[in-house]
Amino acid sequence: MRHVLFRLEKDRYALPLAAIREVVVAPTTWTRVPRSPRAMKGVMNLRGRVVPVVDLRELLEVGPAAGAGQARVMLLDRGRRELGLLIGEVDGIETLEKVGPPAPKASAAVKGLARLGALPVTVLDPDALDATVARAFTTK
């Protein structure tokens, strides 16, 4: 299956290409979401639509970003709505076939680990990502 490869700082991640609507440049200012979990970065105005954006590092609990590497927002296609993920750089599109089991203690949004040449890639599950965000709101 074709995946979009992207980075959070140094770590490589992938999401199925079919689940992605587009990738846009992250805005410089955010409208904060009241009463929201820490992972909720805010909402952005995307061509007249208000799109919620989560900080993927926070959501996956891999620690806050060290620098200003959060340059892009990847928009997950959720049918009639969108969920934005704040990420680093997009590396490209690759076919990932074999996805092995996830690392122990990985977030529920992680589907498993794949390899691209010698490099490990964490493959995420779009549905589970969405559910993780909803859970972060309800258990906050």
């Binding site: 409208t31 009241p34 909402v43 208000v50 919620p52 959720r78 969405d130 709101f137 309800t138």
Partner: peptide
């Protein structure tokens, strides 16, 4: 007034969202 979609509809106390003339989303 724009309706809130998931996960924003999970936030208690919000009725909707709008975009002001300056492009800023406002709850």
């Amino acid at each position: 007034l724009k309706a809130l979609s998931q996960p924003l509809d999970l936030v208690p106390g919000l009725a909707g969202v709008t975009i002001l003339g300056n492009g800023r989303p406002v709850f």
